[in-house]
């Protein structure tokens, strides 16, 4: 960039149903870097935005959950490919938002991209690992298979704005669920850029919806929404987690409770974030001539 050229700045918006709308409320909030300097005005998602996102996620569920595991794996791998092309941009945003050195920011971005690759490889193995034939005591063929739970609301980690976000979003999508994510409130910018990646990675519209804003405000609406099947409270404020879990009980949502402290996201996640958002379907059929 030549020194006398004035940069074109980005408008940071929501990512809902494959598009980038502003909040219907017209609200924005100031996002600052780790030192407090102004970075951008982010869209401040409202209740209506959350509800729109749930409608989009429900609408996308049949196609995404019905896609072959191989196809889902390729799409998720494509996310990693497209992220790789924006590596520098992610590093800059993560470094600014989280106050990391450039080498630590790079490590976080590397790990985030690699996490998509890791999960991409899981889609077509879960069935064999978590399902199987059941040797029932009778003339029946009986098998169980994992299936996605449905629409999952995710309150993303507040500190780790990209690696943490990917670590909670990717497993939800891997299982075939669709997601409505509330991003880190103070560090939402990498999430918006991730939305741009998802929009150009063959992830069908509505499969992942990213709302920048306040989990304490939006969380209760998602927790009590009857068309949300599960909620991940990882990024919920500690003093609100119990209330959110109580609200989620109204429609028997699957709940992932928040950890006492935000974990080290670079650790191997195992299956711990996949299985909470998987159901098991068991099918019986008689054996006979």
């Amino acid at each position: 960039m030549s020194p006398d050229r004035l940069a074109v700045r980005k408008t940071y918006k929501l990512y809902v149903n494959g598009a980038f709308p502003r909040s219907e409320s017209g609200r924005t909030y100031e996002v600052a870097d780790a030192k407090g300097a102004f970075l951008a005005n982010a869209a401040w998602a409202s209740r209506k935005d959350a509800r729109d996102a749930v409608v989009a996620a429900r609408g996308a569920f049949a196609k995404w959950s019905g896609a072959t595991a191989y196809n889902r794996g390729q799409v998720l791998y494509r996310v990693a490919e497209v992220m790789e092309g924006r590596h520098a941009q992610f590093c800059e945003e993560v470094a600014a938002g989280e106050g990391l050195s450039s080498s630590r920011a790079r490590a976080a971005v590397d790990a985030a991209i690699d996490r998509w690759v890791w999960y991409a490889g899981w889609t077509d193995k879960l069935g064999a690992l978590l399902g199987g034939a059941n040797p029932v005591a009778g003339p029946y063929f009986d098998f169980s298979l994992p299936e996605p739970t449905g629409v999952v609301a995710v309150l993303a980690p507040q500190r780790s704005s990209l690696l943490g976000l990917v670590s909670v979003l990717a497993p939800v999508l891997t299982g075939g669920n669709t997601a409505v994510v509330v991003t880190s409130r103070a560090r939402p910018l990498p999430a918006v850029t991730l939305g741009e990646v998802l929009a150009t990675s063959d992830v069908p519209a509505g499969v992942a919806n990213l709302l920048t804003g306040d989990a304490a405000e939006i969380g209760p609406w998602l927790a009590e929404h009857d068309d949300v099947d599960a909620i991940d409270l990882t990024g919920a404020p500690a003093d609100r987690a119990m209330e959110l879990e109580r609200l989620a009980a109204g429609s028997i949502k699957r709940v992932v409770r928040p950890p006492a402290e935000e974990p080290d996201w670079s650790a191997d996640p195992g299956l711990t974030r996949l299985t909470p958002f998987l159901e098991t379907k068991t099918v019986w059929h008689p054996i006979g001539l």
């Binding site: 029932v136 005591a137 009986d142 099918v283 019986w284």
Partner: peptide, 13 residues
């Protein structure tokens, strides 16, 4: 889901 049967149960299932 029970196909061509119904209300079958087994500890392995």
């Amino acid at each position: 889901v029970w196909a061509n049967t119904f209300n079958k149960f087994d500890p392995t299932s």
